[in-house]
């Protein structure tokens, strides 16, 4: 058995043989991974993509044996890549996967592989538990900001925002919600349906009516697909416009995001956002004729971020990420 060092580097000539074997092994693995991932999402519509990704990775960790940490890393990365290819929200998957990998492999002492694995599984479960609860925590924090008779503007469909609004309505608060259509697809209508089901007053508006409506709302509440290192967010296309309008009309702009969405990206402007984030895979070859799926809202337009780590100002996000990755 090759020695396992801290970095998991294998010795010499056996490496190539094992890696090639591994690669064969992997293709099947990856197909399974994707299937499992999609299954998870099918079963529970409410699950966030990030959580599903983490569950998948955890499953891999549990089910498969790994020779070295290095192989583990590689497998994880490939699994994440495979999930990305499913053309679902890539930002969440990437950030969750990244975080998970970091999490489980952090400061592992010189222990046996098996021991490591057990530790990692344990950690994974804890991590998952904490994250499962994150929406609850965030919704609770947002309660204080939703007052009776307030008018809220939200962008398309976000499960976190939905949960926060439903919790508020369960606390006997009455308010009115404006929901934008959210571009192509009917995510706006879905949100309206869910809100109506919960008995909340809501109105569906065109994306282009954001500026018109802004002067009559009290604040804006949106979800996020990812929170970047600058403190800004990546969210469905149209969020940037909403942020601009809100700032101009001096309305607070609140973002509800779980902590696993924090990612180490730092876009400078819309163009600087990687194409994989913006376009679905099939359009990546020629992006000039397609419109993007997401946009980047710089931190200056964001008033507060509600996360399970607490209510943060955009400058605190960078602090968190630095602490994590340094």
């Amino acid at each position: 058995m090759p020695q396992i060092t801290e970095t998991g580097k294998e010795f010499g000539e056996q490496e190539s043989f094992i890696s090639s074997l591994f690669k064969l092994f992997n293709r099947r693995l990856l197909a399974d991974v994707v299937k499992y991932f999609l299954q998870l999402l099918d079963k529970d519509k409410d699950m966030s993509y990030g959580i599903a990704a983490i569950r998948t990775l955890l499953m891999i960790l549990e089910k498969k044996q790994f020779g070295t940490i290095h192989i583990l890393h590689t497998t994880m990365r490939e699994a994440v890549a495979a999930m990305r290819n499913t053309d679902l929200s890539i930002a969440a998957i990437v950030s969750a996967g990244e975080l998970f990998c970091r999490f489980i492999t952090l400061s592992l002492d010189d222990k046996h592989m098996e021991e490591c694995r057990l530790i990692m599984i344990n950690r994974g479960k804890i991590f998952l538990d904490k994250l499962d609860n994150s929406r609850q925590v965030i919704a609770k924090q947002a309660q204080r900001f939703i007052s009776d008779g307030c008018r809220i503007l939200t962008h398309s469909r976000s499960r976190v925002v939905l949960k926060a609004l439903i919790t508020a309505s369960q606390n006997k608060k009455s308010f009115h919600v404006f929901v934008t259509q959210g571009g192509t697809g009917n995510s706006g209508e879905e949100m309206i349906r869910d809100l109506n089901a919960a008995g909340i007053d809501c109105t569906l508006i065109l994306d282009s009516a954001t500026g018109y409506v802004m002067e009559s709302v009290d604040f804006v509440m949106v979800g996020a697909e990812a929170v970047v290192e600058s403190g800004g967010i990546i969210n469905r296309i149209g969020s940037y416009t909403m942020g601009l309008c809100a700032r101009e009309m001096k309305k607070p702009f609140y973002v509800l995001a779980e902590s696993f969405k924090f990612t180490r990206l730092y876009p400078l402007n819309q163009r600087d956002l990687p194409n994989e984030y913006k376009y679905s895979r099939k359009h990546l070859s020629d992006v000039s004729k397609v419109h993007p799926l997401v946009d980047y809202t710089p931190p200056v337009y964001i008033t507060l971020l509600f996360t399970d780590l607490g209510i943060l100002t955009p400058s605190a996000v960078s602090d968190e990420l630095i602490k994590l990755y340094m």
């Binding site: 952090l106 530790i119 804890i126």
Partner: peptide, 21 residues
């Protein structure tokens, strides 16, 4: 290394061992 004992952070989230749970 830092005072993350006091603060909720990603770092703390990520690095908790089972005992400190």
């Amino acid at each position: 290394a830092d005072d993350s004992q006091a603060s909720l952070s990603l770092h703390k989230l990520v690095t908790q061992t089972s005992e400190s749970n």
